[in-house]
C-alpha cells in the first residue's frame, strides 16, 4: 500500500510536535491529519498506509481506529486497545484476567447497587466515571454521607453510562504514583508523578521526577500493556503501604511530556514510538518507471 503515514490529531501538543520531529529526523513521510475534518465513506479507503492515532477525543480516536482497521489500514493503537483503556471496568477485568496486580474494584449497574457495594468495600473508597481521564470527576469517598451525595449526582446525569458506577479500593500511596511508558512491548521510561493531593495527574498539576525503571517495574508495565492490547501505553502504577506495585490504569493515548522532561536525554519516547510505527507500517510499493 502506498501513501504516507498519517499522524491523526485535532490538537498538536508537545507530544505530537515531538513525534513529527522524530519522524522528520528519520526521513519518514508523515502527514498531520486533523481528526475534526475526517470522514470515512465505506467504499473509499483513506490515502494513508498507516496511522498513528493521537486524537485527544477518546470517542473520535476509537471510531477512527475502527474505521481504519475495517478499511485495511494499520493503526496504533488498535480500536480494541483504545476501547479497553477507555473503560476503567474493561481495564480492570483485562488486568485481572492476565494476572496483573491491580487494586480491588467493582462495577455497580445502578447508583443504588453502588451503595450496597460500598458497604461491602468500606471507606474510604474511590468512585470513578467509567470513561474519564485527567482525574476528572474522580471522587474519594470517606463516609456514607459523601457516598449518598456523589451517587445522587451520578443518578441525575443524563447519560445512561453515567449511572454505571465504578468503584476502586483506595490505595494510600506515598504522595506519588509512577507513570511507565511502554512502546512495542518494551518499557522505555518511568517517572514519579508527585502531588500534594491524592490525585497525581500531571493534568492536575502533579510534578514529574525521574524514577528508576527496575526489572520488576518494567515487567509489570509491559504485562499491563499486553493485557489491554496496547502497543503504546502509559501505565499508571501505585505503591501500596507494603511497597507492592499495583497497576491503576493504562492509557492508550499516552501524554509523555512530563515524563520526558523528568528523564531528559536518557529517554526518547517520541523516537521509540516513531521507530515502532516505521517498523509496523508497510513499506511503500515501488512505482514503475
Amino acid at each position: 500500500m502506498n501513501g504516507p503515514i498519517a499522524l491523526l490529531a485535532s490538537r498538536l501538543r508537545v507530544e505530537e510536535k515531538a513525534l513529527l520531529a522524530a519522524f522528520s529526523a528519520r526521513g519518514a513521510d508523515v502527514v498531520h491529519v486533523d481528526a475534526r475534518r475526517l470522514r470515512f465513506p465505506l467504499a473509499e479507503p483513506p490515502p494513508w498506509r498507516f496511522v498513528l492515532n493521537r486524537e485527544i477525543s477518546a470517542t473520535r480516536a476509537r471510531y477512527a481506529a475502527a474505521s481504519l482497521e475495517t478499511q485495511g489500514i494499520g493503526t496504533l493503537n488498535s480500536s480494541h486497545a483504545i476501547a479497553t483503556c477507555g473503560d476503567k471496568w474493561l481495564t480492570s477485568t483485562a488486568l485481572t484476567a492476565a494476572g496483573v496486580p491491580t487494586p480491588a474494584a467493582a462495577l455497580a449497574l445502578t447508583p443504588e447497587a453502588a451503595l450496597d457495594q460500598i458497604a461491602v468495600m468500606g471507606y474510604p473508597v474511590v468512585l470513578k466515571p467509567l470513561s474519564s481521564s485527567w482525574g476528572r470527576r474522580v471522587s474519594l469517598i470517606r463516609d456514607a454521607d459523601a457516598a449518598q451525595a456523589v451517587l445522587e449526582h451520578c443518578a441525575a446525569l443524563p447519560a445512561p453510562q453515567a449511572h454505571l458506577i465504578y468503584l476502586q479500593e483506595f490505595v494510600n500511596k506515598p504522595g506519588r504514583d509512577i507513570r511507565v511508558v511502554v512502546v512495542g512491548g518494551r518499557a522505555v521510561g518511568a517517572a514519579y508523578r508527585n502531588a500534594d493531593t491524592w490525585r497525581t495527574n500531571v493534568a492536575r498539576g502533579a510534578t514529574t521526577t525521574s524514577c528508576e525503571l527496575h526489572d520488576g517495574l518494567a515487567d509489570l508495565a509491559v504485562r499491563a500493556a499486553q493485557a489491554v492490547g496496547a502497543a503504546i501505553a502509559g501505565v499508571d502504577v501505585v505503591e501500596d503501604a507494603d511497597g507492592r506495585l499495583l497497576v491503576l490504569e493504562v492509557n492508550s493515548g499516552v501524554e509523555f511530556a512530563g515524563l520526558q522532561r523528568a528523564l531528559g536525554d536518557g529517554c526518547n519516547v517520541a523516537g521509540a514510538i516513531a521507530d515502532l510505527v516505521l517498523r509496523d507500517a508497510p513499506v511503500p510499493a515501488r512505482v514503475a518507471a
Binding site: 470517542t59 474519564s132 492509557n251
Partner: peptide, 11 residues
C-alpha cells in the same frame, strides 16, 4: 481561541 476541553478528552 482553542476549543474547551470536552468530556471525553484525555489520555
Amino acid at each position: 481561541i482553542a476549543p474547551e476541553a470536552e468530556e471525553d478528552w484525555g489520555e
